[in-house]
Computed example of a mutant assay.
Amino acid sequence: MSRTKAFKEQLDEHGAKWSEWRAVEVVGDFGDPDTEYHAVRGEGLGLADHSWRETLVVTGSDAVPWLQGLVTSDLFQLAEEGSGQITTAVNQVGRLIAEARVLHMPEMLVLDLEPGVLEAGLLSHLRRHIITEDVTLVDRSEQTARVSLYGEQAAELLDRVCDTEHRVTSLEEFAGTWGAMGDEDVVIQRVPLTGGPGFDVSCASEAADRVWRTLIDANDAVTPVGFDTLETLRIEAGVPRFGKELTEERIPLEAGLDHAISFNKGCYLGQEIIARLDTRGTPARLLRTLVLGEGAAPRVGADIEREGKVVGQVVSSVWSPRLQKPIALGYVKRNHNEVGTDVEVEARPASVEALGYALASTSAKV
């Protein structure tokens, strides 16, 4: 990650309170998490710094067919430039190595990843599988900054301040476009992190402060939003994050990542295990939303119990402004993870619900 001094000073001017995620520096909040939350869920716009995410560029005449054999999604569906998808890389036994957002740019594939994923094993894993193929892997994390805009009017604002190949308002989930924001080159990808409209704007690291300023100045409703608020929004939306709900112990099907898996494509590493699980029916456990009736958010790692037996563990938790209740994401064992099942967390009644329950259960603005 490379955040310039000018950009960090700009974030500090907005009241950035610094924290850490996966050994990198992030803005925890900007002093008023409640305002940040309502800017995204309400009628405003939220602007976040995601410069700490990693960027891997894959090029070469064999890039697509080669990577097709190493990820769970069908990259052949990305024939059109600007198309995108979410995918995962798994090992021989189907366990996660990485989760990535993929974007087909002219003459390249761009992978957007959580920090530390490349060094922790993904890059070496991919390099081991280049034999004679014409494939080049370039880690562009240090040269790339990324800011994200969330809210119902985000696409319209980006179309107003950017001149891009495709209109931002036309982008489907994970699709993208590229062009200019004033004098700065940008790449924009639609990313459903919060359960509502959201767009990552990538640029050169040295341009981040100017891109941020352009977006802040473009609309009085734009509010800086920190990592902690985005976690609340993400957990409400039931979107798993690599490094939290997604770890090397998990299989994509357990985390509800069916949309990142093709069950019809040819062979890929780990396919046998995933196909076997799909054929048998439900995995041994599933990631679910847990809704508690009262009190504070439960402790991460707390047992999920039913009839005196441990049937799962809490992986992440927050107080949900949407529901005005504590909620959590947790893996719950088979025969206990049906939607509507009553369980206990920290001796408190809780209900097992589908991922994204907090948003699906109410359409009211907050």
Rank of each mutant, 00 (worst) to 15 (best):
A154I: 06
V117Y: 00
G295F: 03
S73I: 01
V110G: 02
Y268N: 08
A180N: 15
T72G: 06
K244G: 02
E272N: 09
C162F: 02
R250S: 02
D49I: 11
D303T: 08
I235L: 08
T88S: 10
I86Y: 01
A302H: 06
P321R: 04
I131P: 05
T4I: 03
V161D: 12
E206P: 08
D49W: 04
T223I: 04
V222F: 02
A237M: 06
V27A: 14
E353N: 13
I130Y: 00
L75S: 07
S83H: 08
T341Y: 00
T247H: 00
E107W: 00
A180M: 11
R241E: 15
A48Q: 15
V311I: 09
V58F: 00
D29I: 05
E184H: 12
P115R: 07
L45E: 15
G243M: 06
V345K: 01
A221L: 11
D200N: 09
L118I: 12
W21L: 14
D74M: 06
S148E: 15
T289W: 00
E119V: 12
A364D: 13
L287Y: 03
V138A: 13
V71W: 01
L123F: 07
I216A: 10
L78I: 11
V90Y: 00
K8Q: 14
W212D: 15
R160V: 11
N337K: 01
G46N: 14
L171A: 04
G270Y: 03
L78P: 12
T144D: 01
V187Y: 01
L109G: 03
E346V: 01
L123K: 11
E231Y: 01
A360M: 08
L118K: 09
W178T: 07
I216C: 06
G196F: 00
L122M: 09
V138N: 09
P224I: 12
R306T: 13
K244I: 12
G46A: 12
P321D: 12
L123C: 11
A218Y: 06
S351N: 04
G195I: 10
S170F: 00
L171P: 03
E173H: 03
V300L: 00
P115H: 08
S141N: 10
D163K: 10
C162D: 13
G196S: 08
I261Y: 06
P224L: 05
H166C: 04
L137P: 11
A364T: 14
M108P: 05
S170H: 04
F76I: 02
V300I: 06
A89Q: 06
A218W: 04
T136E: 11
V191C: 03
E81H: 05
P252T: 10
Q77H: 05
E119T: 14
Q85F: 02
A48M: 14
Q153M: 07
D12S: 09
T289S: 13
L137C: 09
V291T: 05
P106S: 08
E133V: 12
F76Q: 06
E249M: 04
V117K: 09
V239S: 05
S317T: 14
E36W: 04
F199A: 01
R213E: 15
I86L: 03
E206Y: 04
